[in-house]
Write a protein that binds this DNA or RNA. Structure first.
Lengths: 211, 211
DNA sequence: CGGAGTCTTGACCGTTGTCAATGTTGGTGG
DNA sequence: CCACCAACATTGACAACGGTCAAGACTCCG
């Protein structure tokens, strides 16, 4: 287990690691850096996530993994994971399900970036983060910690940081959210979801594992 | 095994199917229909693909699956797949890998839609399709079948069909591609990949299964 | 108190969307 | 073999969304 400061690259694009990360505390993100200078964040990760579980099966990292805030990360050798999976086949199923749910989130991100206008795009991202944080007990009744700068939100939504700023003002103006310091207050969850066209089905949270 | 005409929905958003599809012939796509009327295609599928393999683990479809061209599809009951996986654990690993590679493709789509300009976005999609078709022996030396209308390409790239048209002209004007009927000719693969910023690593094609 | 990082604002520009009309093509039936 | 039709591709004019640049305000932290 190790601690890292904010904005630190933990796994590099092209790496071939022999262990997986388990995020204990803090926010991480997966991203790709383009040669044009642009950067696209492809996922956010919160405590409890295994952000690079796929390295158990895919040798080469096709993206980078880094911290957004100070983080505590546990490293688990692939060897140990493979032994565990061999011993507890249900764990293999759980890992597979994890991968599938991640894929479902990626799909929704494609939709978000591909065809929602600025304000809805941000609103949708907020809904998703709120749901996920809620699931692991890290949300409050009326909102959640949101230690993401507007530049980071821009890299995740395909918008410029200036435009993110304007769209946040738009959302505040609509009475959907409020922000103080690094806390995102959700003023009316129903309205926010309706506005964003958010449907939590894709997070597959209510489904029960088949025996 | 059944045949379907073009533009037919095979699995609906919200369904809870008890079988998986194996695409034998033709092109399929996964997509989400928004209430705003917009549609986002999240993946294309070619012969050999299992486009809804995730239904083995995730009960509810969070997107739709349909044909783009006339297709031949084989249906395999989940029950049969679970039995197979029980008998041949390597198959479970293969399925997991399949899901992971699909996820990698989704990640790249997020990047594509999120931060590449129109022409590069189309070029990148063409590179991906060419690689994948090549892998299953369905490409020619200088290009591949491309039975996708400009409206479909638009729904996949987050562009309007009118803009797709203009960007195609741009690519033709740069001497990168040519199109006749439903065939996409790739005039200079190197140049096209460079232009698109395409790096096939994310397709994880050269990697060997660990024993 | 000072400074770095972040947020906010305004002006302007470029990319992309929309609408509507016109070509073009492949397939079908006479 | 030809006429016709529907789907698709193409064009032009215009509008809107979002990007860029540059400056200034705020906030947190040492």
């Amino acid at each position: 287990m190790r601690s890292f400061p904010a904005d630190q690259e933990i796994v590099r694009d092209g790496d071939d690691p022999d262990h997986c990360c388990l995020l204990i505390e803090g926010f991480m993100h997966c991203y790709k850096q383009l040669e044009t200078g642009k950067r696209q964040i492809v996922s956010f990760h919160i405590p409890g996530d295994l952000p690079d579980l796929q390295t158990m099966q895919l040798n080469v990292m096709d993206h980078a993994l880094g911290t957004l805030t100070p983080c505590v990360v546990a490293f688990i050798p692939h060897r140990a994971l493979h032994l565990l999976v061999g011993e507890f086949p249900n764990l293999a199923v759980a890992f597979w399900r994890d991968s599938l749910i991640n894929a479902a989130i990626f799909r929704e991100w494609v939709v978000n970036v591909g065809c929602r206008p600025g304000p809805q795009r941000l609103a949708h991202l907020f809904c998703e983060l709120f749901y996920r944080l809620e699931t692991v007990g890290l949300a409050h009744k009326d909102g959640c910690e949101m230690p993401l700068t507007q530049a980071v939100l821009g890299d995740a939504t395909g918008l410029s940081s200036v435009h993110v700023n304007r769209m946040m003002q738009d959302l505040r103006g609509r009475g959907l959210i409020a922000t103080k310091a690094k806390f995102l207050q959700i003023l009316d969850r129903e309205k926010l979801q309706d506005f964003a066209g958010f449907d939590p089905t894709y997070l597959h949270m209510k489904e029960v594992l088949s025996p």
